[in-house]
Design a protein around this nucleic acid. Structure first.
Ligand SMILES: [Mn+2]
Ligand SMILES: [Mn+2]
Ligand SMILES: [Zn+2]
Ligand SMILES: [Zn+2]
Lengths: 144, 144
DNA sequence: GATGAGATTGAGAATCACTCGCAAAATGGA
DNA sequence: TCCATTTTGCGAGTGATTCTCAATCTCATC
């Protein structure tokens, strides 16, 4: 199922309208593979000729999160960041503190162990975020 | 070694002064076992009769982080949160999305697996944060 | 396809956590 | 004690995000 169809369904189910602003923002999200923040998304849309108020971008992002089109991920420099999630498998992140690079990884055993921890505490997990900060292979060579 | 001694050493080594404001804030940190944010710390100090400017609290927290007295932890409601770290072992967190409770856990195998992930990517880790959000045992009973 | 109730938008004001600038006060080595 | 250096308080400034509200758009229904 295409993200746009899923999103239309989500909106209808909640009595919300599928507006041109929302269509444009969705296009922007799909176009930008990778992590982004509200401002970057807004800029990209401007570049493509879509001029939306930034309030609209901010207001709309939560709808995309709720519908599962995107996920909120680790925030950076005081800004909330997001990444596409529709049809993509969960993963966690390595963040280079030197160059800012973000490396994605998935480790099934890590996921399994987290579930075990939750069971041990009778905790029903909904989502988790693991961010490991350090030096990527490139920056590791140069630095200390 | 007591935190206050460690902190004095840290300050001296960096040409900084051990002021009464810093002493008071340290006392506040030690007193408040558990997670706290800048505002809560400021309020607590006020309650004990210490009246510091909140700018001073904000300015001082990074010193405690750098010296290893506290750690920054998962932020909540838009505020940076901290927890005592001096002499305490690293751990991660379960956060109840219903009641806000925070459950701490430590899992050595989870830590080991993270190191393996880093090796696999030639990544030198500095710190990591794992936060699992979901329903605690109490809230799990009531809810869906 | 016209209508209207209800949802959405743009623009700017408002929030809120946090940071800055600066003059006055505190610190600590000599 | 003296003074170069650091700190502090206060208020103003930031920057991301949210709110207000009048004007505009959607879409189920006619
Ligand atoms: Mn990612
Ligand atoms: Mn903790
Ligand atoms: Zn790097
Ligand atoms: Zn709970």
């Amino acid at each position: 199922m295409e993200p746009v169809d899923h999103f239309r369904g989500f909106l209808k189910k909640n009595g919300l309208a599928f507006t041109s602003a929302r269509a444009a923002i969705l296009k922007g999200i799909v176009a930008s593979r990778g992590h982004f923040d509200a401002d970057a998304l807004h800029e990209q849309l401007k570049r493509v000729g879509e001029s939306l108020s930034c309030a609209t971008v901010y207001r709309t992002l939560p709808l995309f999160v709720q519908s599962g089109i995107i996920k909120e991920t680790l925030r950076s420099k005081g800004r909330a960041r997001y990444e596409p999630a529709w049809g993509l498998e969960h993963h966690d992140h390595l963040e280079c503190v030197a160059c800012g690079r973000i490396i994605e990884f998935r480790d099934d055993e890590l996921e399994r162990l987290q579930d075990k921890v939750c069971q041990r505490h009778s905790f029903r997990p909904v989502e988790h975020r693991l961010g490991i900060r350090g030096y990527c292979s490139e920056c590791g060579k140069k630095g200390t």
